[in-house]
């Protein structure tokens, strides 16, 4: 690759003490070599190997998305924050959404077929956006954490994540079964 500017990173780049908001005017999000996500910031440089992260995954889903550039191990720098993804052209916004989907590997539970408890483990058989899944989780409060006001994130024994966005959206039977075991 030769489209990398040769300036040393410490000289060019965002001010690390200040939040910078990226706008469609100031930057362009595109794909580069090997399908890696790139961001070109006007009057600055092209950043390759970019990934995206939610600043407030629960409170503000589509807003405040951080774009980060990995400059080496432990040296990831934030290029800037996107205040609102919908401000960007759909194509660019989609690229960011795909990057988010890659980073956040989370199952969203839509139905609970079965939930059981045995000796400190909860076994679940659920319907998710990624298909039907069975998993086991430790029966401990830090394995099922609150998500917003009425949601829960379950973390299984392999540390995979399962999201119930809203308990009230489950059927009363499922909810009763669920809260009997995961009561906190």
């Amino acid at each position: 690759m030769t489209d990398e500017p040769t300036q040393p990173e410490s000289e060019s780049g965002p001010d690390p003490t200040r939040v910078r908001y990226l706008t469609p005017d100031s930057c362009r999000i595109h794909l580069g070599t090997h399908g890696a996500l790139h961001v070109t910031v006007r009057d600055e440089r092209i950043y390759g190997g970019v990934y995206a992260a939610y600043a407030f995954p629960v409170a503000y889903g589509d807003q405040f998305i951080s774009l980060l550039h990995s400059a080496g191990e432990g040296k990831d720098v934030e290029i800037g924050l996107i205040r609102n993804l919908s401000d960007f052209p759909p194509q660019q916004a989609d690229l960011v959404r795909q990057a988010l989907a890659r980073r956040y590997f989370i199952h969203t539970i839509t139905r609970i077929h079965e939930i059981g408890w045995k000796y400190g483990f909860v076994s679940l058989d659920v319907e998710t956006d990624k298909g039907r899944v069975q998993f086991m989780m430790r029966w401990k409060s830090d394995r099922a954490v609150d998500y917003g006001r009425r949601g829960k994130v379950l973390i299984d024994v392999d540390e995979n994540r399962y999201l119930i966005p809203n308990l009230d959206a489950l059927s009363p039977g499922e909810r009763a079964d669920f809260t009997r075991i995961i009561y906190w």
Binding site: G32, G35, G48, R102, R103, F105, I106, N160
Partner: peptide, 30 residues
């Protein structure tokens, strides 16, 4: 360079190619 990068619920194995980290493999935490 090769590195692993932790995402949420999973991670990536990245390779540094031409100065850019390219995602080679994605994996769940399992």
């Amino acid at each position: 360079e090769i590195r692993t990068r932790q995402g949420v619920g999973g991670g990536f194995l990245d390779a540094l190619v031409d100065g850019i980290y390219v995602e080679v493999v994605a994996y769940s935490n399992a």
